[in-house]
Design a protein around this nucleic acid. Structure first.
Lengths: 217, 217
DNA sequence: TCTATTTTGTGAACATTTCATAAAAAATAT
DNA sequence: ATATTTTTTATGAAATGTTCACAAAATAGA
């Protein structure tokens, strides 16, 4: 799943142009015409990055930024200003208001994209399932907290989670986890599934009789 | 404990001036005259941010950046270019080389500081770790006093600490510390971990059976 | 519908792998 | 030469992985 970007600018052309290019880079792009509209949709969109034009009617970039920064759930949202104003004071004010970056116009699209990419690469990959695997820390992250898993359980969950919703046949699981040559009893998998369910909740993994298992979407 | 910044610039005045101001902002500042020197000390300093001048003798900013990016333990290090070159291509190349930001000179000190602060506020706070490492003196500082660490122990701790919370596989540790070709017994690592635990307390390092170890966040 | 058959769920026992630890030997540094 | 550091080895402990026996549930066949 892609990172979400909200472009806030009162000029249609610019929104479209930047939007087109950022979509091309693989982002989910949302747009707003002004600060007020941005604040309306930002709660539901929950963008990872907001590209905020400085000069806007009704509510300017700085005010919008301050409003966004007052929303605790959005504290990790990156806010980048786009501004034609080179003045030092304007930049300082923007950072004061909680900006993460300040880009002076005019700027080439390629540079803008590079910059956005540079910011995005530092963000955590997007999560959407209630269940998520942290490969580095080797734990499953859930709303309730982190659960460490032994190797086999981790591998099985990792497989199921590689395509959430897809039913993996028992055979598929055996060859993927144990390898084609290793032979283990046919109840072994059930025991591992059982232990996973103990830790993740019974609903997390669904059985398809005669076929295999899948992780709930 | 403060975030560490490494300033790399061949002009003494600039290093001093920027360094003075960033220290004033509360950072631990280290300096290097050129890319080669930067690469020498970067392993022991392990800065959170590198301010890299573009134009330098011997090794320019871009080359230095690429070298740094080849060091796995430093992948979370932010690299910011300082350059008098406004050319688009130069910026794009820098991002290509792994830069996180590109600041064109001249830039006012206050803007530079704001920008550095904006970057730093997104990093994990450093003071959360129960351990404080003095990379220069190769000791662990605790309320009870300093604990010097022998080379192997220090290197292992340094690796684990490069990404606190991440589980490093035994293999990963072996290749990083001993190198891919050296072969040592499989209990050796455990002994070093044991000695580290003796010195740092048992809770500091967590075992993931079948996988490896991680340092507690 | 009722029963037979297949498939899955489950806990406990068992087997295996992996790790912790001390002690001692080997290698390095001082 | 002596102290320090690193590696090896042996052993017990613990976590993990597997099997098994049987229960429960779903499916198929009459």
């Amino acid at each position: 799943m892609a990172h979400r970007i909200l472009i806030v600018d009162d000029e249609d052309d610019i929104r479209e142009f930047i939007g087109y290019n950022l979509r091309h880079e693989g982002y989910d792009v949302y747009t707003a015409e002004n600060g007020a509209e941005a604040l309306e949709i930002i709660g539901s969109v929950r963008p990872h990055l907001v590209l905020l034009d400085m000069m806007m009617p009704i509510m300017d970039g700085r005010q919008t930024c301050e409003k966004i920064r007052q929303i605790p759930e959005l504290k990790d949202t990156m806010i980048v200003f786009l501004s034609a104003v080179q003045e030092e004071q304007c930049q300082l004010d923007s950072y004061q208001a909680g900006a993460d970056d300040y880009i002076t116009k005019p700027v080439s699209m390629r540079v803008l994209c590079s910059r956005v990419n540079a910011i995005m690469k530092r963000l955590k990959p997007v999560e959407n399932l209630p269940l998520n695997i942290d490969f580095d820390r080797r734990v499953v992250t859930t709303p309730q907290g982190d659960i460490p898993l032994p190797r086999k359980e981790f591998e099985i969950l990792q497989l199921l989670l590689s395509e959430p919703g897809k039913v993996f046949t028992r055979e598929e699981i055996f060859t993927q986890i144990w390898g084609g040559d290793v032979v283990v009893g046919d109840r072994t998998l059930d025991v591992h599934i059982r232990r996973l369910r103990r830790k993740l909740g019974d609903e997390a993994i669904v059985t398809h009789k005669g076929i295999g298992f899948k992780i709930l979407l």
